[in-house]
Design a protein around this nucleic acid. Structure first.
Length: 292
DNA sequence: CCTCACACCTGGGTGC
DNA sequence: TGCACCCAGGTGTGAG
């Protein structure tokens, strides 16, 4: 269940090993992991083989790696995806779906293993497009076409606070659904949505258009705080040895106040936290602090 | 355009 | 021990 902090930890961990590397060979062990690859533009293996990686980028939960061919390798971890850096002669990983062999000028030969139990994640080669997004006056950006509809994340310097707050306060739908809407604000998943709602004392089913301006701003501030804290913890617990990059290492459960904490006392008021099913997924909240 | 239900997936856990 | 079932949830799609 990687969300923004976990994906960013993976991106940052991959960056030193993958930027400047040349892809020498590609093996697709399960074509279902290519569901976001548009084969009409070309063959996944053929478009990657021989290409050199220029940088490591992220927007929300999408990562991408621009190539010297002009396209980008796009990666989404979905629910259970991991990108593991391995020695070329390493033991095979369980649920390995795609393997890239790369040659790096400093680190030499490496295997990049895309591992994904549930196959909600994917790899793809996609075209990069130019896009105007974010606060008025923000510079134009390059983004894979398949991620063009994804909003900036709230840790991005060009994130438009006023536009988000305004749009949120026009939505009749519940505020949790709005937080999970990647077209409105990206990077938040079920865990950090529940954490942000708990921190701002909001019930997830409270309609967005019922929020005061101040409350909507407070929610955005709490979202930032929760994500920043999780990112900092992920950064510190992250093994500096890049060959151990492991996308599953996230979930800084010791700092969770709501998610998975049903039955435990609320850290604020002591009331027993509850879990209900909402939007086909678990929602965790304090029935006293977070009134509908 | 907006809202929302649902399909897509696997394997760990539970109940019988 | 085995088997059926439930559950975890990010994203894209299509219905209304």
């Amino acid at each position: 269940m990687p969300e923004l902090p976990e994906v960013e930890v993976v991106r940052a961990g991959l960056e030193p090993a993958i930027v400047g590397a040349r892809i020498t060979s590609v093996q697709v062990l399960d074509p279902r992991s290519l569901k976001r690859h548009n084969a009409l533009r070309g063959d996944f293996v053929g478009m990657l083989t021989g290409a050199t990686v220029l940088s490591a980028e992220r927007r929300g939960k999408f990562m991408w790696f621009p190539l010297d061919t002009g396209d980008a390798l796009v990666t989404h971890l979905g629910m259970s995806g991991q990108v593991l850096l391995r020695a070329v002669d390493g033991a095979p990983d369980r649920h390995l779906r795609i393997q890239l062999m790369v040659s790096h000028p400093v680190h030499g030969e490496l295997a990049i293993n895309f591992v994904d139990q549930r196959i909600f994640g994917s790899m793809a080669v996609d075209e990069l497009i130019q896009q105007q997004i974010g606060k008025p006056g923000s510079p134009s950006r390059t983004v894979p076409s398949q991620a063009a509809h994804i909003a900036l994340d709230p840790l991005d310097a060009d994130f438009d606070d006023d536009a988000f707050v305004g749009a949120l306060r026009k939505k009749s739908t519940g505020v949790k659904r709005a937080l999970l809407d990647q077209n409105l604000i990206s990077g938040i998943g079920n865990i950090y949505a529940d954490e942000s709602l708990w921190a701002s004392r909001l019930h997830g089913e409270k309609p967005g258009d019922a929020l005061s301006l101040a409350k909507a701003r407070e929610l955005l501030a709490e979202v930032r705080s929760v994500l920043t804290k999780a990112l900092a913890e992920g950064g510190t617990s992250f093994d500096a040895q890049y060959v151990n990059v492991n996308g599953a290492s996230g979930y800084f459960s010791h700092s969770l106040n709501a998610y998975g904490q049903q039955g435990k006392p609320c850290a604020r008021c002591g009331t027993e936290l509850r879990r209900v099913t909402f939007m086909n997924r678990g929602s965790h909240f304090c029935p006293r602090c977070q009134r509908r």
